[in-house]
Amino acid sequence: MYAFDFVKPSSIDDAVKALSAEGAQPIAGGQTLIPTLKARLNAPETLVSLTGIAELKGVCRDGDVLVIGAGTSHAAVARDAAAEFPGLAALALQIGDPAVRNRGTLGGSIANNDPAACYPAAVLATGATVVTDRREIAADDFFQGMFTTALEEGEIVTSVRFPIPEVSAYAKFAQPASRFALTGVFVAKFAEGVRVAVTGASEDGVFRWTEAEEALVRSFAPEALADLRVPDGGMINDLHGTPAYRAHLVGVMTRRAVKAAS
């Protein structure tokens, strides 16, 4: 790692102030950022830790919405969202491993927007609202392609407001080495419709599979998807799967998610 200064503010305001300095970057759980720093692929002058800010942590229900603080660990979401939003709790339990889940956070995950991360699928499939220190951003606007989001320099995610679906499930097919999603699909059924979001598969990062959504509105059953297939074009090609394989897995995992949700 290159040398950097470390500060650990205890309020959002102080964190935003600290982040306005030249070369300052936030660090949440650090489970992705620290390996990146070790590889010297990133050289912040100051790291602003968000782990000491109590107001960023916690899970609470607000009507039909589950509000989760951006600094809430995956382990805490798995535990504290289980009763209100079991589909999301189950997703959190599939991220990393137990030790990673004790450090990694919701905010860190979506701000990084790794194309193979799990959380972006849930945020997009529920049409959640990403709340930052300065505004609210709809999920459909937040994710802007691989490792790219609508966040501005120095802007930090403070919470995510998840509309709670009637039923939902996340089906993940893990990449054998990293255990990130080779393809992961979150399906959420609401009174007003169905949303399907796919992670791990596309070169553009998480995306909605609208054809599947339409078919599932007509019939929320795996069979409704029998004839549907996403095109191979734009799917990731790497050591672990070809575009054709990933496109195929999108169909399989969507059907499995629907089956698990219904």
Partner: peptide, 18 residues
């Protein structure tokens, strides 16, 4: 695995499946 230029593609536990 190497690519055709001799870059090691499976160079960490992120890509080399233990």
């Amino acid at each position: 695995t190497y690519d055709e230029n001799g870059q090691l593609l499976s160079a960490s536990y992120m890509d080399y499946a233990m």
